[in-house]
Amino acid sequence: MSNIIETVTPAPTPEAAFMRALKSFALLRESTPGMVGAFLVLFWVIVAILAPLIAPFDPLATLQPMAKPGTVYSMGGTFWLGTDHLGRDILSRIIYGSQTVLFYAPLATLCAYTLGILMGLAAGYHLGWWDIVLSRISDIILSFPVLVLYIIIIATIGSSGINIIIAITFASAPGIMRIVRGLVLDLRNRDYVAAAQTRGESALYIMLVEILPNARGPLIVDACLRLGYVIITIGVLGFLGLGLPPPDPDWGGMINETRKMAMIFPHMTIFPVIAISSLILGFNLLADGLREVSLRD
């Protein structure tokens, strides 16, 4: 009997798991696109954190309408990227807009992951009815064209920060569930799961402590990609007029408000476009780099 217990491979401890995650981030140095992505993401995170310090103006204050980039403000200061149709400084709005997007996107992704992981663990570990019901539900939600789903949800429950998070959670959880389910199907027959079952651990404990930490690799890569999609979604909703209510700075909303004036004042639209594209590109490159690195070892 003792023989069997000795041959059981122990589940990696949290510390070891953390060290491995750290190592794969360190390995990222070897992937140029991954480094560029990490740099872009880090850049915007720092901008968001330091927003009150580096923004030259109040993002909501109306100062001087339709100033070209580089105009010097009569009350002091320079509009480095110009101002919009209401006279708000575009650079400050972009800087504060990074706070908005980096608050809502990770939060919505986190909510979607919590729900998706729970669904995936339940379906993959219990199988049977759990699996059939949860898989069918997610098949049906996934058969919607994504934006159609968002528009219907937002049009029905109204557009606000919380509703956007609800809509994103509802629409993305099934995709995450599928990935988690696939990973769990592979992990549930491992020795350490059997050992935990023999010890008499509860199903919830086994799912969360034994299986989930070992499924994290592909999930981290997917989370980076999904963050990119969520940022696109928040941007698109803002662009279509279904996003966060004005006047709070939101990149998608900025593009929508000023796009009709892009002919005369291209600066109003171009800079938010560059901002949002660079952040999405950052997450996509980071995901690509992480995948490349994780495939190597």
Partner: peptide, 14 residues
């Protein structure tokens, strides 16, 4: 990767 990162609403404007 780059073209897929620029969302449609951004590339319409660009």
């Amino acid at each position: 990767i780059i073209t897929t990162s620029v969302p449609e609403f951004a590339s319409t404007v660009l």
